[in-house]
């Protein structure tokens, strides 16, 4: 391709300046400063995430399979045997918000592996040489994870609706759901990027990633109420942001009693701490 004689060779044949065709490449863009940098970078990285999803729709479909199976098999079965005290609502309804949170978490946890892969392939290296503070890069990645998880949440909500789960269609509440999904994903992606900054290799991260997602998921209120857990697991659940995310989602989508103020407070704090931790560990990946 590079040698195709038929292709126009503007750069090598003619000095570039003459036609004025490259005028913009002579002028550096005016830098954004102050608070505008962070949202601009986050926006750029979210845009990339959406572009990738557009090119690879298959990922969207394959990712929908697992939550659908959870709802279909686990949800339908446990609805019939009524083994879990859900406060009167069908178990599958109770489960749906948990599965939304679960699939969002799985997407977010993958970001640590992705950032190591981007380091190994030089993509991260190049981004680190742009005028992007490390915290902005991490915030961008965290929100990109949120965007991806949000799309996944829409898919899971649609599947749940098809399975007859009675979810709210109140737009304000749905926006609340979106915010909780984004904040939760921001935290879990930063958790995994922080671990990536500590262990530095993909193999080790894969092992740790699997080792933590399981207890995070089962040690939360995603599948069953905290009250039926043994005491020690209840303590784990209290420290687990996933529980707060599920609590918010359940309250908003099903109208169960909830503590929205606390839930959003914890999620916001967790996301902020996650961004802080991951940004300060990012330098290790640059070396």
């Amino acid at each position: 391709m590079s040698a195709a004689p038929a292709a126009p060779q503007p750069a090598s044949a003619e000095p570039l300046g003459t036609a004025g065709a490259l005028d913009l490449l002579l002028v550096p863009p005016r830098p954004r400063t102050g608070w505008r940098v962070l949202p601009a970078r986050a926006g750029a990285l979210c845009a990339v995430e959406l572009q990738k999803l557009r090119h690879d729709r298959a990922e969207l479909y394959t990712r929908a399979v697992q939550p659908a199976l959870w709802l279909l098999i686990f949800g339908e079965t446990f609805t019939r045997i009524k083994a879990i005290p859900t406060g009167g609502i069908p178990y599958i309804d109770y489960l749906a918000p948990g599965i939304i949170a679960q699939s969002a978490m799985f997407i977010a946890i993958f970001y640590g592996i992705m950032i190591i892969w981007e380091r190994d392939s030089g993509i991260l290296t190049k981004l680190l040489v742009t005028p992007t503070p490390r915290s902005a890069l991490i915030t961008g990645k965290a929100f990109a994870a949120g965007v991806k998880a949000l799309i996944q949440a829409v898919v899971v909500i649609a599947i749940a609706a098809l399975l007859g789960v009675a979810l709210t269609w109140n737009p304000l509440k749905l926006i609340g759901v979106g915010v909780a999904v984004v904040l939760g994903s921001a935290f879990f992606s930063c958790l995994s990027m922080s671990i990536a900054g500590i262990v530095l290799t993909r193999d080790r991260l894969m092992g740790i990633g699997q080792a933590i997602t399981m207890p995070l998921f089962f040690g939360s209120s995603a599948l069953y109420p905290v009250s039926i857990m043994p005491g020690w697991l209840q303590a784990v659940s209290k420290a687990n942001p996933l529980s707060y995310q599920v609590d918010a989602l359940r309250g908003l989508l099903l109208g169960t009693p909830t503590h929205l103020g606390l839930d959003y407070g914890v999620l916001l704090l967790a996301a902020a701490l996650g961004i802080l931790a991951a940004s300060s560990l990012l330098g290790r990946l640059a070396r």
């Binding site: 550096p28 863009p29 005016r30 830098p31 954004r32 601009a40 970078r41 926006g43 750029a44 845009a47 990339v48 572009q51 990738k52 090119h55 190049k126 981004l127 742009t130 005028p131 992007t132």
Partner: peptide, 15 residues
């Protein structure tokens, strides 16, 4: 990403 998107990302992060 496409070639164009690859370049556009860098245009964006350079404001």
């Amino acid at each position: 990403l496409t070639g164009r998107e690859n370049v556009a990302l860098f245009a964006r992060v350079f404001d």
